[in-house]
Simulated scan of single mutants.
Amino acid sequence: MLAIATTSSCFFPTTKLNRTSHLLSLSFNCRSLFLSFSSQQPKKQTSSIIFCTSYEVGGGFPDEDFGLKTSTQAKDDEKWDHSHYEALLKGGEQVTSVLEEMVKILEDMSMDGASEEVAVELTTQGVIGKRVDEMEPGFMMALDYMIQLAEKDNDTQRKSLLEVIKETVLSHLTKKCPPHVQVISLLCQTPKKESRNELLRRVAAGGGVFQSVKGTKVHLPGANLNDIANQADDLLETMESRPTVPDRKLLSRLVLIREEARNMMGGGILDERNDRGLNTLPEAEVNFLTKLVALRPGKNVQDMIKNVMLGKDEGADISDDGEEEDDAGRPLSGGIAGRVSVTGRRPLPVRPGMFLETVSKVLGGIYAGNVSGITAQHLEWVHQKTLQVLQEISF
């Protein structure tokens, strides 16, 4: 059941009339918003400057947001084709319909101020649960758009209610995912390593209903640890293959989930289940690892690791012109040891998931050859410190 962090008065006033009128006002504003938005669908322009008339919905918008648009801004708007507008409009209509149905249900309820929070929660769960299979593709896009507008208008009541609807939708959609995907979602919301490990143990044992620290009951699905690790690895590959990482926190959490799930499987570095087809070591990660191994373990090396994990230095995202630069503005090396890249293409920056995968591969080669020594100890230290840094970044 969705926990609402804000107080009930944040959503509705204490009287039934005010509560209903607030929801009616919100649904009316939402409908007016998308009727106004539909009139802004892209049309062929004959000049490089576009004049837009301002309109007022739910408190109005700043003049600078709907004043003069340059040709660059107009070009960005043209990226939205007709299908995007249609999806957003249909999603907006569905959001409005959800709010109107909530109004009807709450009108029939007799409650005091103390029970309003539960009433809002149950109503949202019921309405969304009934409609989740019929959601338009643009529903979440419209909801995010409306939340942004509410935040811009400083309308906390509207923003809070829309966020409750969004969280409820995400909760219902998560339950429809495969068990290992649901587990990854839960792990991403679990800050402490010990709690994540306990969650993984219970999931691997078949799941069940457990009581949380706050006293609420939590249902954990049963899932395979290997499926969890592989799913996290697939998500990591998708995120890290892009020139720019959209969310460093999420990326760090996924790396931790993959490593902790693999570690719990008990096979160690040489476990064949951890072999995901990395036959050629990535150049950027090898260069960075070579630099780390050449230095004495200590705070300086740990700071270097942290900077790269945060997307600085060797981990800096590729700029718009395709050139990757360090903090001093110098282009970074492409191939191993400063040589030309063997692929003929500039490699991606150092990524957290791929870096730990590289460390594990090198360690596996050392242990397989039975020649472990100071280098293996150094790599183990790098692996451990990288996980500590990612834990700090993640939460």
Rank of each mutant, 00 (worst) to 15 (best):
S8G: 15
F12A: 12
K16R: 14
L17C: 02
T20M: 11
L26R: 08
R31M: 09
S32T: 12
S36L: 12
Q41T: 09
F51D: 03
T53V: 01
S54P: 01
E56L: 11
K69W: 11
S71V: 05
K79Q: 10
L88Q: 05
L89A: 05
L89F: 13
G91Y: 06
Q94T: 03
T96L: 00
L99G: 08
K104R: 14
K104F: 09
I105V: 15
S110N: 10
E116F: 04
A119G: 06
E121K: 15
T123F: 04
Q125C: 07
G126R: 11
G126Q: 08
G126F: 11
K130Y: 07
K130M: 08
R131G: 03
M146G: 01
A150M: 01
K152P: 00
L162Q: 00
V164C: 10
V169Q: 00
K176G: 05
V181C: 10
S185V: 09
S185D: 13
L187S: 07
L187G: 06
T190D: 02
K192E: 12
K192S: 10
A204H: 01
G207N: 11
K214T: 10
V218T: 13
I228C: 07
E240G: 03
V245K: 12
P246I: 02
R248Y: 07
S252A: 15
R253Y: 09
L254Y: 07
V255P: 03
R258T: 02
A261P: 01
M265G: 01
L270G: 04
L281K: 06
T290D: 07
V293K: 05
L295Q: 10
P297E: 04
G298E: 02
Q302N: 09
V308A: 08
K312C: 01
E314A: 15
D317F: 04
S319T: 05
E323H: 02
D327G: 12
G329C: 07
L332C: 04
S333C: 09
G334W: 04
A337V: 03
A337E: 03
R339L: 08
R339H: 12
V340M: 05
S341D: 03
L348H: 06
R351H: 01
G353E: 03
V359I: 15
V359N: 11
K361E: 07
G365T: 04
G369C: 10
N370W: 08
V371I: 08
V371W: 05
A376M: 00
E380Q: 14
W381K: 06
L387Q: 13
E392S: 14
